[in-house]
Amino acid sequence: MDRAIAILPTEDLAVAKVFYVDGLGFQVTFEASEDGHTGLLGLARGGIELTLDCPMNGHGRNACVSLHVDDVDMYYREWSARVAVPRAPKNEEWGARTFGLEDPSGNTIFVLGPVRDESLE
């Protein structure tokens, strides 16, 4: 099975772990750190996998990951109750329903899924 896993830079694994695990409901799949603040942290939630890297030398900063999900609104309801999410999901003219947020290190998490019939709300 071929797959890609986004690697996001972070300033502090401990801060990022709280955000992703407590705030967004991810599970830790591996942790390679001697001090809890630097190293690597693997995360998963359903079919979504991420790796956090601190310090991420030789790579760009302020990365963006796009999470393709079946129910954008479910993620928005859950996550906005736990962390700051700047705007509610909206149907985009290009054919997806989206919202986005930033993690504590300034990485963008862009969530998109199928367009929802807003007249049903």
Rank of each mutant, 00 (worst) to 15 (best):
C64I: 13
G39R: 07
Q27P: 00
D35L: 10
L40T: 03
V115R: 08
A84D: 15
I7T: 14
A63N: 15
S119L: 13
V115Q: 13
T29W: 05
V72C: 04
H59Y: 15
I7Y: 11
G100K: 07
G47D: 10
I48F: 05
G36E: 01
A88N: 00
L52D: 02
R116D: 07
V28T: 15
Q27F: 04
N91L: 03
V18G: 00
F30W: 03
D53E: 08
G39H: 09
T98R: 14
P89Y: 05
V69S: 02
G46T: 05
S33G: 07
P9F: 07
L101Q: 11
P114Y: 05
Y75V: 03
A4S: 12
R45K: 14
V115D: 04
Q27K: 14
W79T: 04
Y20Q: 05
E49A: 14
I109V: 15
P86L: 03
F26N: 07
A6I: 08
N107M: 09
I7G: 02
V115H: 01
A84G: 08
D35H: 10
T108L: 14
R82H: 15
Y75G: 02
P55S: 06
S105Q: 03
D71W: 01
V18F: 07
D71Q: 08
V111N: 03
F30N: 05
N91W: 03
G58I: 06
V72P: 09
R77W: 06
Q27W: 01
V28M: 05
D73M: 12
A84K: 13
A16G: 12
V72T: 11
L8Y: 01
G106E: 05
H37K: 14
N57D: 14
A32S: 03
D117N: 15
P9M: 01
S119M: 09
E31H: 04
R82I: 00
